[in-house]
């Protein structure tokens, strides 16, 4: 922590983008400290995000959310367990071949259902899930003198709103502005 330097919290849960990377670089160049709250740190580092940006990854917490766990249970764990039990019962070569075909079918169907679920249902709920899941991991983080909270994509909006409540008077915006933070209050 560097004490009195202003700090901007950027929240981004979509794939790493040049827009966010450049925004963070611009802020760092102006002497502003940047925290990035995201799902996983590695893709951002691989994309060349400046090392000076402090990353807080919340993917693990998101995965532990009941919605994800229920999906995992219904799509993978329960059918997987049934298939596993069938395999252990050794029903004969013909049945084994059928079982392999069934396993293959399950893999494809589960993958397809996951994609449909993820795109059509989970994505709609994801901002809410992220906001709930990130509460605990972010609770203990000392962000210092926060001057702006920026939602860089649509999945970050709900958590941005929650953080805005934690930092009353700090600008909470979806606009990635090039200038230095304006200090408290909404962006002009």
């Amino acid at each position: 922590m560097s004490g009195n330097r202003p700090r901007v919290i950027v929240l981004a849960f979509a794939a790493p983008s040049k827009r966010v990377k450049d925004y963070a670089a611009g802020l760092l160049a102006q002497g502003v400290e940047v925290d990035l709250i995201t799902s996983v740190a590695a893709p951002w580092r691989a994309a060349g995000l400046d090392r000076a940006v402090r990353i807080h990854a919340v993917a693990e917490a998101e995965e532990r959310h009941p919605v994800r766990r229920v999906e995992n249970l219904l799509l993978y764990r329960i059918p997987g367990r049934i298939l596993h039990d069938l395999r252990r019962s050794r029903l004969g070569p013909n049945a084994d071949r059928r079982l392999e075909e069934l396993c293959d079918l399950h893999r494809r169907a589960a993958g397809r259902l996951h994609r449909i679920f993820y795109r059509r249902v989970y994505n709609v709920m994801r901002p809410l899930v992220i906001a709930r899941a990130a509460r605990r991991p972010l609770q203990g983080v000392d962000f210092g003198r926060v001057e702006r909270i920026v939602a860089a994509d649509i999945f970050a909006v709900t958590l941005t709103w929650e953080l805005a409540r934690r930092f009353p008077g700090v600008a909470a915006t979806t606009a990635l502005e090039a200038g230095p933070p304006a200090g408290g209050g909404p962006p002009s």
Partner: peptide, 19 residues
């Protein structure tokens, strides 16, 4: 509107659906 504080209940909890 860019100010997240001014977003309505639907937009701040389910922004994708609102959009």
């Amino acid at each position: 509107e860019h100010d997240v504080r001014r977003f309505g209940a639907l937009r701040r909890s389910m922004p994708l659906l609102a959009r």
